[in-house]
């Protein structure tokens, strides 16, 4: 990407909108890996000294001490979901987070799931 940031251009644009795209460095390949309800959990904390991790990466690692969905991470950090997918892809590849994809479809093994969900809803 263009590393020379033109300050005149910068002023034309809303910095908070631009920033996430700079972090994500235009990468899109990670985006189809994670669903909005893919769950991420931190498995290795960052020390803050890692090369190539942005503050937003660090924020995700801190946030995901308990499992959170892509949608929740995006909402809490006020980042577009697409950006969170890219950042999570980085963290996953480097072993900081584990990611659990949702079931691709509900199969017969999940008969128990329907029952558990129904019981759970009734008990709310």
């Amino acid at each position: 990407m263009n590393t020379e940031w033109n300050p005149d251009e910068e002023r034309l644009l809303d910095a908070p909108t631009i920033r996430p795209y700079v972090i994500a460095r235009g990468r899109t390949e990670a985006q189809d890996r994670f669903d909005l309800i893919s769950l991420a959990v931190t498995v290795r904390p960052t020390t803050g000294a890692e090369i190539g991790l942005d503050p937003e990466h660090q924020a995700i690692v801190r946030l995901c001490r308990r499992p959170l969905s892509v949608a929740e991470i995006a909402a809490h950090l006020d980042l577009p979901a697409g950006i969170v997918r890219v950042l999570l892809g980085d963290l996953f590849d480097r072993g900081f987070v584990a990611v659990q994809q949702p079931q691709p479809e509900m199969n017969v093994l999940d008969e128990r799931m329907y029952k558990a969900v129904l019981d759970g809803l009734r008990a709310l």
Binding site: V41, V43, R44, P67, S69, G95, A98, Q100, P102, Q103
Partner: peptide
């Protein structure tokens, strides 16, 4: 599995 620790068990997310 090679991320150091075993990841904690996560719930199944349903949309």
């Amino acid at each position: 599995s090679d991320s150091g620790k075993n990841p904690p068990k996560m719930p199944t997310a349903i949309k």
